[in-house]
Nucleic acid binder design. Structure first.
Lengths: 217, 217
DNA sequence: GTTTAAATTAAACAGTCGTTTAATTTTATT
DNA sequence: AATAAAATTAAACGACTGTTTAATTTAAAC
């Protein structure tokens, strides 16, 4: 018999096979985009039958939905925990940046898809889930910066909703031009590339945001 | 007879019809991605026969190449002119940011495609052209910042290749999340959205880069 | 007006796409 | 071991893909 392919089933109950499919899908989507990846590609790389994707997720579109939820569900939690930590405002901001970069760095594939496939088309369900994630993130950032402003450490004329674009945007632009920067900065191996992100790029972003928040004209 | 469909013809000789096709292609590529846009889509919107795209450009891939060259050729010139201007280093940086934002803002569509289609696949020809553009841009930025450092206005420990990611990345991340920020910042019309970019967002980026270049620990 | 080249067209090409089908095998339950 | 559910399969579906074809119309040259 065929299972009822509703959202509850396809999104929450994730068995090993489903996760295997999601991992392959993420890899291929990030390499070739959503439209550029066929279900036949996915099933070939995941070594399953073509029909299994539809069987498990219902459709390619719903596979994307499941992928988004699967990959973004714990970032929110991580940020909420950061809020409760007892840190100086600047340290908190630095840690926020680290969380962002680490989180996105580990999920480069899906974030690429998120930004360039979701917003483009009218993928309603996926879009709403993504918007909620962003709203939650913004609240966390607002809260952290408000703490620093209350302590008189941060200036008060920064436009807070534009902080996240600077953090994530810088990282993303770097990553989207990976081949360019690999050549320019002589990052010959994948390890060197990841090291550069973890050290130099993260530092640059932290330095940038610190300067923006602290600098007085 | 059929014209020789070589690069010289398809890239340089741009008649009205070709430009019309390129404009439509940019619009659709930016909305639905390269893979997500069919030649039938393009020909329908451009009100031409399907075969005309192949006739003029040779293939869909070569259409993309032509589009990139068509849309990026004058940015390089604009930056080289900026170098020659007699301005204070900080004013020069601010103007650089304005040029970047204005230039990309007017060509949002193609830059979206550039970042997410080019780097993903092995579109060699397009990729090389794009890499050359970025190298030239970096040289301009290096030169401007070196001027400021020589005058003792800018600090000397900034990683210059990461300046551009911060400028363009911030703008891009904002634009990629257009629907999100439209709702968040209450930008009800297209004019209000563009105004926000021209004023608030540009100011934010200028303020950020200034702080980064000038701020002393 | 005739000739030659360019532009434009409808139709067909061979593939690929996402999805569904019905049959079969595997697994779990009793 | 028998029964029921779930997983897996190969095959087919119609729709769409980029590209090419050969025929026709339009424009330019002489």
């Amino acid at each position: 018999m065929y299972p009822i392919r509703n959202n509850i089933m396809s999104n929450i109950e994730l068995n090993d096979k489903k996760i295997q499919i999601l991992e392959v899908a993420e890899k291929l989507f990030s390499e070739k985009g959503f439209e550029g990846t066929s279900i036949r590609d996915i099933s070939k790389h995941a070594k399953i039958n073509i029909a299994m994707v539809s069987y498990y997720f219902g459709s390619k579109e719903r596979l994307l939905e499941a992928l988004i939820i699967y990959k973004t569900s714990d970032l929110k939690l991580q940020l909420e925990n950061l809020l409760l930590e007892n840190l100086e405002p600047l340290d908190k901001v630095n840690k926020l940046i680290e969380i962002y970069i680490n989180r996105i760095s580990c999920n480069k594939g899906i974030f690429r898809v998120l930004h360039f496939e979701i917003n483009a088309k009218k993928r309603e369900k996926s879009f709403i889930a993504f918007t909620e994630l962003k709203k939650g993130n913004l609240k966390s950032v607002e809260s952290i910066i408000a703490q620093g402003q209350a302590k008189g450490v941060f200036r008060k004329d920064v436009i807070i909703p534009l902080i996240t674009p600077t953090i994530i945007g810088t990282f993303f632009h770097f990553h989207m031009n990976k081949p360019f920067f690999e050549e320019l900065l002589n990052l010959k191996t994948e390890a060197m590339y990841n090291d550069y992100i973890k050290n130099s790029l993260t530092k640059h972003i932290q330095q940038t945001i610190k300067a923006l928040l602290v600098y007085e004209n």
